[in-house]
């Protein structure tokens, strides 16, 4: 069982209704984690519209998650 810390921004933060959340799970990848959280919160964005960040590095959706990882899903950006 691993502990994963998730932080939400922008549209996902509003849809989740929280800024952060901790999950205890056997989940293996950011893709699996997102799909579980999307089902829980009813996120409107799909993984093809997001990028995954683990411990402040952009990562592939199939990267292995480890105990204590900090995960952020990045919605389409709109700076400038």
């Amino acid at each position: 069982m691993k502990t994963l810390h998730i932080e939400y921004y922008a549209l996902l933060r509003e849809q989740a209704g929280v800024k952060q959340q901790t999950v205890q799970s056997e989940i293996r990848t950011p893709a699996e984690l997102y799909n579980q959280l999307a089902a829980e919160h009813g996120f409107s964005l799909g993984t093809e519209q997001l990028r995954a960040v683990v411990n402040e590095e952009f990562v592939n959706w199939d990267r292995q998650l480890n105990d204590g990882d900090r995960v952020v899903f990045i919605p389409p950006v709109a700076g400038g």
Binding site: Y9, A10, L11, L45, Q49, V53, I74, P75, P76, V77, A78, G79, G80
Partner: peptide, 23 residues
């Protein structure tokens, strides 16, 4: 900066609606 920096913009419109740009 516009393509890859994690910054988001929420617009509030005069009709009372609002939305996250590009989302």
């Amino acid at each position: 900066i516009k393509v890859s920096v994690p910054i988001w913009k929420k617009e509030h419109y005069t009709d009372g609606d609002s939305g996250w740009v590009n989302c």
